[in-house]
């Protein structure tokens, strides 16, 4: 449970898709002129990441990684197909996006109307492939965590595009230097937001190595002091007893 929570907050704030690793910047810059469209695209990204990351996790676990084919029989244990991961991941993503589009159109026309236009865009969004590739690179251990990673990275991306869209709506009324208008100022604002997000880096370091050492060291010294006191007390008691006995 704790590792789920940790991964959840880590992927939203510390390893934020946009501010820490610059994934999905193209659509982030292109579709962030209005808050309403930004919300639509953000929701679609969360949705697609939640579907494709666990799916690619299964592919990676049972097909691609070194020795993954061992479930077919011991003679397959030496196969390492990980060089195929790019092509399989992107094929999965493209197919899933198509499938999701068809299913959503069939069962929920209202959702399709709000998400539909963005779904084809998403197939080539770096954030989606990046989610799967980072999932593979970080060796996420279980299917549940992979799902968690997909959803939380999506939420991180959603927050980022929502924030920049809101800022861009406001900045239209400001007097930005002419050559910076549009793209330039958006870059610089994103950079400043990224610096803000850097400060989340300290959020999960509570139980890392250095503080622990310090703590244990202080605990030891306290223990030693206490032991010394006890010894002194005993000695005093012994000497007192001796005195009394005499």
């Amino acid at each position: 449970m704790l590792e789920h929570l940790e991964l959840f907050f880590k992927s939203i704030f510390i390893d934020n898709m946009v501010f820490a690793v610059f994934l999905g910047m193209c659509s982030y810059l292109a579709v962030s002129k209005k808050v309403s469209t930004a919300v639509g695209l953000g929701a679609a990204v969360i949705f697609v990441l939640a579907v494709t990351v666990p799916l690619n996790w299964l592919l990676d676990q049972y097909l691609l990684r070194d020795g993954a084919l061992v479930w077919l029989g011991p003679e397959y244990a030496d196969y390492n197909l990980s060089f195929l991961s790019f092509i399989l991941f992107i094929a999965t993503i493209a197919t899933m996006v198509q499938l999701v589009e068809i299913v959503v159109e069939k069962f929920s026309p209202s959702l399709y109307n709000s998400l539909g236009i963005f779904l084809p865009l998403i197939a080539v969004n770096c954030a989606i492939l990046g989610g799967s590739l980072f999932m593979q690179a970080r060796e996420i251990p279980s299917l549940g965590l992979a799902f968690n990673y997909g959803v939380s990275s999506g939420i991180g991306w959603f927050l980022a595009i929502l924030a920049i869209a809101a800022i861009r709506e406001k900045i239209r009324y400001s007097n930005v230097p002419a050559p910076l208008r549009g793209l330039g100022i958006t870059f610089i604002i994103t950079g400043l937001m990224g610096i803000g997000f850097q400060s989340f880096g300290g959020m999960l370091t509570g139980d890392n190595e250095p503080p622990e050492e310090v703590q244990s060291a202080t605990v030891e010294t306290i223990d030693e002091k206490e032991i010394n006191k006890e010894i002194e007390d005993k000695e005093k008691a012994v000497s007192y007893n001796e005195v009394v006995n005499k």
Partner: peptide, 21 residues
Amino acid sequence: IPPAALIVVGIIIWVQRSRNK
């Protein structure tokens, strides 16, 4: 740190667009 890249690109855009109105 990563955000610096964004700011550097922003400045490149600024310089380029000031030179070519």
